[in-house]
Computed example of a mutant assay.
Amino acid sequence: MKKSMKLVAALTLVFATMFTACSGNSTKTESSKSATKTGSVTTSSAKTSNTNTVGSKSTTSTAAADNSSGAAKLDLSSITGEGDKLDKILQAGVITCATSPDFAPNEFIDISSGETKYVGCDMDLAQYIADSLGVKLEIVPMKFDAIKAAVTTGQVDMAIAGLAYTEERAKNMQLSDLFGNTDADEGQGIVVLKENADKLKTADDFTGKTILAQNGSVQLDLTTTQLPKANCTPIADVNNGAMEVITGQADGLTLDLAVAKVLITAHKELAISDFKFEYESKGNVIGCTKGETKLVNALNMVVKEVNDKGLYKQWKDKAVELAKSLGVEVNN
């Protein structure tokens, strides 16, 4: 769910902080990665860290040792369901959470203290879950398109990464109830160079243009289905995609508009095209290994509490402000 002082340094941080595929529903596609985040630093401290291997990618993660979210520990005695992950989490005292920290304000990186911290509204939710279960939180950062494999093979306990509900995800993962429907009025759009914004305003204007979208995201589906005359190029990393737009190697980058608004605040050379995809957001979900219904039932208790208290909106508002402040003040 950070960005500029010196152009190159700022780009590195901003990009490392700000995006990653978002999601939503189109009339043809049912959601994906979506943006909504808040800005408290909740997920990592340098106290405990280890290296995890996800596929071929080695990732370092950190765990927060203290209750920092204010969540009360849940009574889990009545929780039922299949799978043993919840029991193992409680026994180990740690829950692992995969995320793709390039998608502000949902999940992004804050290094302003000299220490790498994973922040944003999704990370606030992850911390709230850990505190509700009475365990430590370990964040496992990875590319967005690696998250599915990490979850389905059980390498992580859960994934919180701007995941919207899709039928394909429901077939491959055990999904939580919906949360965070705070950006239904935002939508999905395309970030372009400001100097080209007047020339790229309609679907026809993107004919023959190179539009980037993150692999495995709803943005990719939206671009290929709703802009069939454009050259849609899948990318593994949204950070690199934004750099390609800035340097003129691509004409646009499809993003959740909540994320795009944070991006253009930090980078004055970018703008949001007037074109918007057909889109409807219902909120996001937490992904767990298929069949782990006992764990998901416990997570749904937390999700209900978060929804009832309106916490996600609060976290998102803080995350937006943090992302904007980092974009102006942080030098990598």
Results as ranks from 00 to 15, higher is better:
I109G: 02
L212S: 04
G189M: 00
S4F: 09
K3Y: 06
T225G: 08
T182Q: 07
S273R: 08
V191R: 01
L222G: 06
K171H: 07
L86S: 05
T43S: 15
S217R: 02
A21F: 00
T254S: 14
P101R: 07
A161R: 09
M301H: 12
E280I: 07
Q127A: 15
A164P: 13
A250E: 00
G287N: 01
V140N: 01
D274P: 09
L90Q: 08
G93P: 01
S61C: 14
I111N: 00
G81E: 10
T43F: 13
M158I: 15
A213T: 05
L11C: 02
G310M: 09
Y128P: 04
A10Q: 03
D183K: 03
K136V: 10
F108K: 07
T59S: 15
S112A: 14
I264S: 00
V218Y: 12
K229A: 06
A230I: 01
P105Q: 04
D185R: 12
N196R: 01
G83Q: 08
K148I: 11
V238M: 13
C22P: 03
K47A: 14
I286C: 08
A35E: 05
D145N: 15
I79A: 05
V191M: 04
G241I: 02
A203R: 05
D308Q: 11
S68H: 02
A46F: 15
V119R: 03
T224S: 05
K37N: 11
I211E: 03
C288H: 01
I286T: 10
S56G: 14
C288T: 05
N331Y: 09
T29N: 15
T223I: 11
I109K: 03
V94G: 02
N181E: 07
S45Q: 06
G55H: 01
L311Y: 05
A146C: 13
V320Q: 02
K37G: 13
N25A: 13
L137Q: 01
N172C: 08
K201A: 05
S77K: 15
T153E: 11
A9Y: 08
A72S: 12
S132I: 11
A242H: 04
T59P: 02
N297A: 07
D102W: 06
L222T: 03
V54D: 03
K2F: 06
T38A: 14
S281I: 02
A65W: 08
L200A: 09
K37R: 10
T254W: 06
G208P: 10
C22L: 06
V192L: 01
A298H: 07
G114P: 02
V296Y: 00
T289W: 04
T42M: 13
S58G: 09
A35C: 13
D237P: 08
E280T: 13
G208Y: 10
K199Q: 12
A130S: 13
L76F: 10
K318A: 12
